[in-house]
């Protein structure tokens, strides 16, 4: 009998490049996929800036985080959410975003956290 899958939810709340948090969160989520668990990924607060198009980390000698985010689906992370309030507060909408995300309200987010077995909040 195989063990039931556990649900991991990663909440990425920091802008890319200035600090390593966004990258740490992504790397940890990719590692979780190796364990064949359910993995949700949420962009919230300044984390939504990670989703901006036309990033080029090369200009500051860094890898481009957005390019790595485009591989989330290949890693089997299909439930990618974005906090719609965070988008609104930053004058952003889905047209600005690099990848397809599911907009969620704060209440939906609270429910997602409640359902999750593990929450990694970065």
């Amino acid at each position: 009998m195989t063990k039931p899958k556990k649900m991991f939810t990663f909440i990425s709340r920091q802008a890319p490049y200035g600090k390593d948090r966004a990258r740490l969160c992504l790397d940890a989520a990719l590692a979780a996929t190796v364990f064949e668990q359910k993995v949700n990924y949420v962009f919230s607060d300044d984390g939504v800036y990670q989703l901006l198009k036309q990033q080029n980390g090369g200009s500051i000698g860094s890898k481009t985080l957005g390019s790595a985010l485009e591989a989330l689906d290949l890693y089997g992370i299909e439930d990618v959410f974005v906090n719609e309030a965070s988008l609104r507060q930053r004058n952003l909408n889905s047209e600005h975003l690099l990848i397809k995300t599911i907009p969620v309200t704060n209440i939906q987010l609270a429910n997602l956290i409640l359902k999750s077995d593990y929450v990694i909040n970065l």
């Binding site: 556990k6 991991f8 790397d27 940890a28 590692a31 979780a32 190796v34 364990f35 668990q37 593990y118 990694i120 909040n121």
Partner: peptide
């Protein structure tokens, strides 16, 4: 060791405090 140990810690603990 690798990040696998990070995920493994979540799976095997009742609580993970960061």
């Amino acid at each position: 060791s690798g990040l696998g140990q990070f995920i493994d810690a979540y799976i095997h603990s009742d609580r993970v405090i960061s």
